[in-house]
Design a protein around this nucleic acid. Structure first.
Lengths: 202, 202, 202, 202
DNA sequence: GATGAATGAGACTTCATTCAT
DNA sequence: TATGAATGAAGTCTCATTCAT
């Protein structure tokens, strides 16, 4: 009943702090195992304040997911659009994927886990939407080179899978501490392999 | 006066029923969201009976995981060992992976999810062990051909990733209802692509 | 930079809007279930503004109760005082009670519910006070006729109950959508019955 | 995690104790204000045990409501069916209603409050159903006497209201400590008044 | 006067697990 | 073996109310 608001903050700053704290908690033991209590203690915000700003635990995860995906996508597409040749593009996408994974280990872990975690249908739908958007953007860039037969003839979807499939699988192993190859060597080797797999020149 | 146990079953049959029910529950909303209550209702076994046979919720998942992995591994290695040439082997591995995915949709979904689910360290360790065993077996089969330079020179780990990465990623999309390519066309196309990616002949 | 109050209204108008919104909320699910959040959204006033004007959720209900009772009482006593004969008075009280119920369905529902709702002692005391005042006023009007034996010999309290009991019970059923008799037919029939019950002439 | 069941009871006995404790809690401050914590302490059952048997707080109230109504109804209908004449029947119904109210003050208070409390639609429907059943049973008993013109010509519904309306209103006042007339005097006076109101002989 | 961020106690409910029968 | 009553910690979320701006 008697309470004094101690830390009055601008809304966006408060949300920022809660999101950051929540990310740490989700990473520690996973989404389901993270508790509001932990997020509260880690963020310094009160229980009620968190709900005032987010409305639910899931909403925090949703905002984090959108943020992580946006950063990844922007990074990748920016790198892609700086390239001229398809070979450079293929190499850069693989290299940058692994580099982003390495530099943003937390985000990668969170995005990987939440994607298969038990989230509700609405959130799952949003994830698929973002997946499709990214795949489309990549495919669009390669389309002219596919028409010129510089890149193997594959449906757009499979081309993207051939491009990212191995490094996604590698990243998963690396995050889990299971990779015997170093991630830096993998950058080069998987870039070579991807170009070998996609080029018609070999 | 005393209630008589009505559903006395042979132990293995009762466990079978509980495992089957649990698989359905885990698939419905994920491991964490599934409750003993649901498994109890779905299996017809009582609370106490389930604990008598399994000891914990996690133990049920562990048994299911072992079972699913064993079936997958046996299927894949049997297919691999019937092959003579590296090309046939590469094609068969991709094809059979996708075929197994298609024919055992439930198992695939369960294995995929539990792999990133929030399980304890012991279970995670067991998963990695089984991963490594399978990778080693595949690599061992290809080793002679790698030495003969018929297969691209890649560390064993990356070779396996190059082989399965795309079809794992495809399977994930297909399970989620997101694949625009049919899984049967994908079998052929991804087999071609895998061979193109791994062969030194191209 | 600073947010400007956008909806600055004369105090009484703002209170009016909040009361109206609160009445709707209380009617929807009852006093206890109505939340300040709902009242805030329904009224357009901010959290703080509501507290500035009322001080508490209960105070809003109290003001509404006083308002509803005042309207009912004034209506009934005005109608009573226009009568000359006890028969006309009995008939008019029953008729007008049901007519007011019909024309002010919302108020009736609110007054009925709040009367048995879980409110604090202070408010309960105030309710009883108003009940007694009304009963006294009615009884005072009939006193001369009771002394002249035109109206059955009953303690004042029971006389009023005999007068209003059936139509209160009917109103309760009608509000709940349970009445099989139409409220307009009930006006006449219950007026007849009340006169039959109270008159010594029969 | 570690727990020892201390008070293992037959299911019905445990439910009995919880219901009794809940009735006391609901009476103390009303349904909404009563907490599971209070019921737990008052009943001696654990939190989980209560949910094992009832599933929700509302379900406890529902069972109590059914029980109270059943007791009231059985008492009243048994008394009614022992009568021969309509006069005796009218008097007995009024008298027994007030006597039951007096002897089962707790039940009356609970039934009165819960009826206007904030309960969900399903429970409200059940209440109306029981109301209608009782009214029908009473009306059926009087039907022959109405046809013989020994009882005033009123639609069944209004007849019942004329019969019980005043004593329901009185009971409400008496429970609230507002009645100036004693309940025992009221039994006789309201029985007389009811007969005067319903009989055609006067 | 108005706003809405902040509070924190406490609400109901769920759950894996235990164990007497 | 089977049953299901019992446990109680812990979960998410709600709420009336306060007060700095």
């Amino acid at each position: 009943m008697k309470t004094r608001p101690l830390n009055r903050l601008p809304a966006e700053q408060r949300k920022r702090e809660v999101r950051d704290a929540a990310l740490r908690c989700f990473l520690a033991n996973g989404y389901a195992a993270a508790t509001l209590q932990q997020i509260r203690l880690a963020s310094g915000a009160s229980h009620g304040s968190i709900y005032h700003h987010f409305g639910s635990k899931q909403a925090i995860a949703r905002e984090l997911y959108e943020e992580g995906r946006r950063q990844y996508t922007q990074h990748m597409l920016a790198a892609l659009r700086r390239q001229q040749s398809p070979e450079a593009a293929v190499r850069v996408l693989v290299t940058e994927h692994l580099r982003w994974t390495r530099l943003h280990r937390d985000w990668t872990l969170f995005l990987t886990r939440i994607a298969t975690a038990e989230v509700n249908a609405e959130m799952r739908g949003r994830m698929m939407e973002l997946d499709a958007e990214f795949a489309d953007a990549v495919h669009e860039w390669f389309a002219p080179f596919i028409r010129k037969r510089l890149i193997v003839r594959l449906p757009a979807e499979l081309l993207v899978l051939q491009l990212f499939g191995p490094c996604i699988a590698f990243a998963r192993r690396w995050i889990g501490g299971m990779a015997s190859t170093g991630i830096r060597s993998a950058e080069r080797l998987l870039a070579d392999a991807a170009w070998h797999a996609l080029s018609t020149e070999n």
